[in-house]
Design a protein around this nucleic acid. Structure first.
Lengths: 224, 224
DNA sequence: GAACGAGTCAACGCCGTGTCGAGAAACGGA
DNA sequence: TCCGTTTCTCGACACGGCGTTGACTCGTTC
């Protein structure tokens, strides 16, 4: 009895589901179904919100019955989590790239980081919106988000501290607090521009505006 | 047949539910029930999330049966919306007060505005968290939020423009875009600190950090 | 060809929502 | 005082989503 990949219970590593133990992964029709479910989920998310998608929709879309769905995934959230793992990997990779590449100057560097953040989520609009939606209902989704957020905050806080250390940025509130506030801004502004609900910035305005706020917050000074 | 107050359908004004048409509001046991429902909702929200509260919980808490609940409110969301109307009124009042009172200086003024924003939502923690949660499931809730957000943005954008006009703040990205980004930051940072999920600022750090970002973003300059 | 595991699904139980229609309770007039 | 109207109440229902159970098929392996 395949337990599905266990997203949804116990957080943690759990990279690839140990799959293909047998020499040649004999008869993998099961994997096809699993992929079909994931593909269906991604397709349906382009059309409707996560809440409007039922397990039955996913099963039908993958050409199986509802109980069979549960053979592959323990819940709808687990499907989302599996999909999100890809996005998270991509986001982490983008972050690594950006923070390790040498920048021509501060403006260049922060600009690139913000653009990377924006691009990553913009290129997975539907998933990003579903992610935010599921945060209120699933602790696992919430904590996956918290991990990603935390990694960005740490990178940014470290970068701010480095700028302060070399005398390029003035001291002020703790670097970590600054990073938390600014990263929160990124998150909310980008989400609003992707989901299109309420007053939001046009996509082309997002990075310039965020950049201005980041630069002044990190390097600028208040009046008096 | 009382239609309940019609929160949940057709947005709009709809201040007080036209109640008490009869000379003396003869026999208002109905109002008592309605208040009981609202009070129950507020009490339960302190204990559990909106999603974990069923219509049955609200009905039982108010001492009535589930069908009777529907005599007073068309849905659970409508109860929340009614509760939120109070918070919105309070937030608008706080905003009006803050923006109309003369400030000793820029720092004073913005500090007061941020504190007002923070205080308003902090004093209704449970409702604020429920509000955010319901935004993903109810269009009415979403649009109520958008209205409040928009009013703050307009006030702040106007204030920024005034500062620019009198030469105190440099030109840069459009004032409205700046206001949208900064207000988004407020929203997200305050929500995170109230809901306590994921990495968040301590409540006492919220206003100082936000203030630093606002001041530098409005008045400061980027390097080069 | 028996035993096994992977895969499949009809049928079930549970819980939440919202509605319908039959009443009880209070009032306002004739 | 009775009678109609309005207000209010709820038992019973229909529906839909979730997750589980138990039996059944079908290849593979020994």
């Amino acid at each position: 009895m395949r337990a599905g990949n266990l997203r949804g219970m116990s957080e943690g590593a759990e990279q690839s589901p140990v799959r293909a133990r047998g020499r040649r992964a004999a008869r993998t029709s099961g994997d096809d179904r699993e992929q079909a479910i994931l593909a269906t989920a991604e397709r349906l998310l382009d059309e409707k919100s996560l809440g409007a998608i039922s397990v039955d929709d996913l099963a039908r879309g993958a050409g199986i019955s509802r109980p069979t769905f549960y053979f592959y995934f323990p819940s709808k959230d687990a499907v989302l989590l599996t999909l999100l793992d890809r996005v998270v990997a991509e986001a982490d990779e983008a972050m690594r790239t950006v923070f390790e590449a040498p920048a021509a100057g501060p403006r260049e560097g922060w600009q690139r980081a913000l653009a990377a953040y924006h691009d990553t989520f913009r290129s997975h609009r539907a998933l990003t919106v579903a992610w935010a939606e599921a945060r209120s209902t699933s602790a696992a989704v919430r904590s996956l988000w918290a991990e990603v957020f935390e990694r960005w905050v740490q990178r940014c806080a470290a970068a701010i501290e480095a700028e302060r250390a070399r005398g390029a940025a003035p001291a002020g509130v703790p670097a970590r607090n600054l990073a938390v506030a600014l990263t929160s801004m990124n998150e909310r502004v980008i989400y609003a521009s992707l989901s299109g609900d309420g007053p939001a910035l046009a996509e082309s305005d997002v990075v310039p505006v965020l950049l201005q706020v980041w630069l002044t917050a990190v390097y600028g000074r208040a009046p008096e």
